[in-house]
Design a protein around this nucleic acid. Structure first.
Length: 515
RNA sequence: GCGCCUGUAGCUCAGUUGGAUAGAGCAACGGCCUUCUAAGCCGUAGGCCGAACGUUCGAAUCGUUUCAGGCGCACCA
């Protein structure tokens, strides 16, 4: 059982035995300052009004009563102290050892597993991917890994917009070059376009290009869905439109067909078929989301750039109109990335070809550093990605700091002549104990990263774990004469190695054996 | 004008389902390699959490207002 849940259960048992009903939600959490304890609860604050006593008094009562609710052998020796109204729980090392030896530690903890379709990147096949796509790729792939780890069933999808205006323009540009004519003003003039003239199918070639870049970035999709063959050639877009007409939520006005999205809270109704007879991109998008919904998921998660914010309401309206309330559409917005060179913004334009591709970034600084840089910041803060800085910093980049901890452990293991073995009775050095306990909070971070869709938490956790390990390395020599101590410390090293490797795996970053 | 995001140390950012003295890295300064990788460790310094008011026992966190920056408000994709 998860450590936090075990503590919550004890408090709940106490409450129900004493027939106390809290007036609002209480929780057991990781204290901001770990020196206060390993876990803490605010229950005394919540009960203050109900019991008409001050939080410190209630906390003191609970602190003396609660130990009786931890009878399990491993929990013997738990310290429960009341400070300023908080109840702090200081765990015995045996609880940590027990949790860490469990194969399912920090895995599959989701109480409501869902079938999720996660769609991300979905770049137009009109050019190479750039750093912005890289952010969605790093974010989406890590999120998929995190969601799977806690027990959701996740399928990832890349939607290929291979129909419409931009595609026509690209093909026109390729034809123009082939015919020795200049590229049209609104066409694509990037160097890569010239390489497409010999391709039988330039779109497929560009998809391959994007797929290869993503593979170099360690991002692979379960499915690639092509708009043209899946939605247009099959007549599914028209079918969706017809359904809307039949339901009376699409109407003709001034020669255009409108979808009454205002029925679902949109600002204005949206055009499905232009007065010219052309379908809008939105029409295809509605059909696409209807199809996704019909494939049987509980939830559709899309990662979009913040510039697509305005689309959420109308696409949600489309799903509700055609399918209903399930699946839920959840859109994660990420703020855009500005690529800087020497502190100066590099304008990104596929049309002019003035861009630095994701492929180039990966080749310059490596997939590990690039992924870490792109995923470490909260997705809703704007990201300045300075190429020169990233290159320059490659030596003191946090990703190396974390990887170095892993490599150091591997080195220790290679030199060791002992077998790791836990000696629960052994006294631990304070730094050692801190490290051991910090390992335990991995499960809470993973849960949080999953439920809030925030993979950057994993990156921050790993940096902190590496910090604890490096301090341990400094304070506690592992390969010492004392056999029991050496075995114990080796066991800690193995546990740290495992969590570092699993955490890095969640971010799609390698865990090197040596550096 | 309306909507969304951001504003925390010199710089880059954590911390935001309300909680304990607001944290880290980089940059600055000072220590630590006869000891398992110094890509490391330890210490010093650095803050009216953009501003104001409000809710609360308690606010960086919630509400209102306001200032600054970014992004959207198409019969474009």
């Amino acid at each position: 059982m998860r450590t936090r849940l075990r503590i919550e259960a004890a408090i709940s048992a106490y409450l129900s035995e004493h027939e106390i009903v809290p007036s609002s939600a209480w929780l057991v959490e990781l204290p901001k300052d770990r020196s206060n304890g390993d876990y803490a609860s605010n229950i005394a604050f919540v009960l203050a009004r109900t019991l008409k006593k001050s939080p410190p008094v209630i906390a003191a009562d609970l602190a003396t009563s609660l130990p009786a609710y931890f009878k399990d052998p491993a929990w013997q020796g738990i310290q429960i102290v009341a400070v300023n109204g908080f109840i702090n729980f200081i765990l015995p090392a045996t609880v940590c050892w027990q949790a860490l030896q469990d194969e399912t530690f920090a895995k599959g903890d989701e109480s409501n597993p869902e079938r999720i379709l996660l769609e991300y990147v979905s770049a137009n096949p009109t050019g190479p991917l750039h750093i912005g796509h890289g952010r969605w790729a790093a974010l989406g792939d890590s999120l998929a890994r995190v969601l799977k780890r806690v027990g959701h069933s996740v399928q990832t999808e890349f939607y290929v917009n291979d129909a419409g205006n931009q595609i026509d323009k690209l093909l026109a540009s390729v034809s123009a070059i082939k015919a020795g004519k200049p590229v049209p003003d609104d066409g694509y003039g990037g160097a890569y376009v010239k390489d497409l003239v010999d391709e039988a199918d330039p779109i497929v070639a560009l998809m391959k290009l994007q797929e290869n870049t993503l593979r170099d970035f360690r991002v692979e999709f379960d499915t690639w869905t092509r708009e043209k063959e899946t939605l247009h050639d099959t007549g599914l877009v028209q079918k969706s439109i017809n359904e809307l007409k039949q339901k009376g939520i699409a109407y003709l006005e001034e020669g255009a067909l409108f979808f009454r999205s205002t029925d679902w809270g949109d600002d204005k109704d949206r055009v499905l078929v232009k007065s010219t007879g052309e379908l809008t991109y939105f029409a295809a998008d509605i059909a696409y989301h209807q199809q996704k919904a019909l494939r049987g998921y509980d939830r559709l998660i899309n990662i979009w750039g913040a510039d697509h914010h305005g689309y959420i309401t109308r696409v949600t309206a489309g799903i509700k109109a055609l399918v209903g309330d399930t699946p839920i559409l959840e859109v994660l917005l990420g703020q855009l990335v500005t690529l800087l060179r020497d502190g100066v913004e590099v304008r990104m334009s596929k049309r002019t070809g003035d861009m630095v591709s994701l492929q180039e970034v990966i080749e310059e600084i490596g997939a590990d550093a690039a992924r870490f840089f792109l995923v470490i910041k909260n997705a809703d803060t704007h990201l300045d990605f300075d190429l020169d800085l990233a290159k320059k910093q490659s030596n003191d980049n946090p990703v190396f700091y974390v990887q170095y901890a892993h490599a150091r452990i591997c080195s220790i293991l290679r030199k060791s002549e002992q077998k790791p073995l836990v000696h629960p009775a052994l006294d631990l050095h304070p730094t050692e104990l801190k490290l051991l306990k910090f390992l335990l909070s991995f499960e809470d971070e993973v849960i949080l990263a999953a439920s809030r869709r925030e993979p950057h938490r994993i990156a921050n956790y790993l940096i902190e774990l590496a910090t604890h390990f490096h301090a341990f390395y400094h304070d506690c020599k592992v390969n010492v004469e004392d056999q029991a101590m050496a075995q114990n410390r080796l066991a800690i090293c193995l546990a740290v190695k495992r969590i570092l490797a699993e955490g890095l795996e969640l971010l799609g970053i390698t865990a090197p054996e040596s550096m």
